[in-house]
Computed example of a mutant assay.
Amino acid sequence: MNIDNLEKNVRRSIYFVSLASVVAPTFYIIWFWFVNNRAMSKDTEAWGQLGDFVGGIVNPLIAFSAFYWLATSVLLQKTELAETRKSLEESKNVQEEQAKTVLISTKLQYLNIQLEAINSQISAERSYINQLIQQGQIHGTEYTVVTRSGVNMTINKVLKEVNDQITTHSEERDRLINQVKTIAPNLG
């Protein structure tokens, strides 16, 4: 229902009821004064009858107009309520999608931080291996070094432990990458 048309129809109804309220008594007066040549009565009973006549014509028009606009108002509210429900449902769906996207983004950021930490650990372990290899080339593989934990070990044993740690970190990195692929399959 168009709002502009609705406003025009309301104005028309008001004009019609107002016109009927004026025309009915005017015709009544014309009928008695000019057609029947009657003078204005001083009898209050006659004026009461005139009021009943005017009320009998105008009151049903007003009541019909009021009922019509009440029904129109209910239909308009029903339409607007349906549109509001539809908009709210669409808004709810959009918000749910946004929440899912934010959740996925947060999970991916968390996994990315973990991947960066693991890659840093792997890089540090590889640098440590390179230092051990350089010392092994200079002093031999049975040369004893002090490890990062403060224990004396031969370079061969330290290299084996560091390689085991790199393998563990690499497996953890692969597990995290699989989680990323599971969370966001279109990224990889």
Results as ranks from 00 to 15, higher is better:
Glu83His: 13
Phe34Val: 06
Asn119Phe: 07
Thr79Ser: 12
Lys86Cys: 02
Ser21Ala: 11
Arg126Met: 10
Val74Glu: 12
Val17Gly: 00
Trp69Ala: 01
Gln49Glu: 11
Gly136Val: 02
Arg85Ser: 05
Ala99Glu: 12
Gly140His: 00
Trp47Arg: 06
Arg148Glu: 10
Ala71Leu: 15
Arg85His: 12
Ile104Gln: 12
Thr106Lys: 01
Arg38Glu: 11
Val35Thr: 05
Ala82Trp: 09
Gly150Arg: 01
Thr101Gln: 09
Leu115Lys: 13
Lys107Cys: 04
Gly150Asp: 09
Ile129Pro: 02
Ala71Val: 15
Asn37Tyr: 07
Tyr28Met: 08
Ala117Asp: 15
Gln95Cys: 14
Tyr143Ile: 04
Arg148Lys: 15
Lys100His: 00
Arg126Pro: 08
Arg148Gln: 14
Ala117Ile: 07
Ile138Val: 15
Glu83Asn: 12
Tyr143Val: 03
Ile29Ser: 03
Gln77Ile: 13
Thr101Ser: 14
Asp52Gly: 08
Phe53Glu: 09
Ser127Ala: 14
Pro25Ile: 00
Ile122Phe: 00
Glu89Cys: 14
Asn130Val: 04
Gln131Phe: 08
Tyr110Val: 10
Val94Asn: 15
Gly136Glu: 04
Ser73His: 13
Tyr143Trp: 11
Lys86Leu: 11
Tyr110Gly: 13
Val35Ile: 10
Ser120Cys: 05
Ser65Asp: 03
Thr101Met: 07
Ser149Arg: 09
Gln134Ser: 15
Thr84Ser: 14
Tyr28Gly: 06
Glu83Thr: 05
Pro25Cys: 03
Ile122Tyr: 00
Ile104Asp: 09
Gln134Cys: 07
Phe64His: 07
Leu115Phe: 09
Glu125Arg: 06
Tyr128Gln: 04
Val102Thr: 11
Glu116Ile: 07
Ser41Gly: 04
Thr84His: 11
Ala63Trp: 08
Arg148Asp: 12
Glu89Arg: 15
Pro60Ile: 02
Leu115Asp: 06
Glu80Gly: 03
Ser120Pro: 01
Arg85Pro: 03
Lys107Leu: 09
Lys107Gln: 14
Tyr15Gln: 07
Gln114Phe: 02
Gly140Tyr: 02
Leu75Glu: 10
Val74Leu: 14
Val22Tyr: 02
Arg38Pro: 00
Ser149Gly: 05
Lys92Trp: 03
Thr147Gly: 00
Leu75Ala: 13
Tyr28Ser: 02
Ile104Phe: 10
Ile104Gly: 05
Leu81Ala: 06
Tyr128Thr: 07
Val35Arg: 06
Phe16Glu: 09
Ala82Asn: 13
Gly140Cys: 03
Val54Ser: 01
Glu89Thr: 14
Ile30Val: 14
Phe16Met: 07
Ala66Lys: 04
Ser123Ile: 10
Thr106Gly: 10
Glu142Arg: 08
Ile138Thr: 14
Gln77Pro: 05
Ile104Pro: 04
Val54Cys: 05
Thr141Trp: 08
Gln98Pro: 01
